[in-house]
């Protein structure tokens, strides 16, 4: 299991479009992907879950990856956050 801390960089936060990008990226990996914000834990492969996060610019998230390709998944997803979802 790997855990990473990320900060939302893109201006509009995790709104529908970045949420879709994130979910699609996560679907490429076998590993389970969980997003933790405050007391909330949601499945990062679920669009409806990610939509409920209300993560604005500047909010901090914990990402948890667990599975055979967790290294690659973590690298790819963290990169996505760092690039601000290319917005």
């Amino acid at each position: 299991m790997i855990e990473r801390q990320v900060t939302i960089r893109n201006r509009s936060g995790l709104h529908t479009r970045p949420a879709a990008t994130l979910v699609k990226a996560a679907a490429r990996f076998q590993s389970e992907f969980t997003i933790i914000k405050d007391a909330m834990e949601i499945n990062g492969k679920s669009i409806i879950g990610v939509m409920t996060l209300a993560a604005e610019q500047g909010s901090e998230l914990r990402l948890r990856f667990e599975g055979p390709d967790e290294e690659q998944a973590a690298a790819a997803i963290v990169d996505l956050f760092e690039r601000g979802f290319d917005e």
């Binding site: 879709a20 979910v23 679920s46 669009i47 879950g49």
Partner: peptide, 16 residues
């Protein structure tokens, strides 16, 4: 039309 795209994505949410 984007409003409806989001709705389709929810329908296809495999986790859900």
């Amino acid at each position: 039309a984007r409003i409806f795209e989001a709705q389709i994505m929810i329908l296809n949410d495999a986790v859900l």
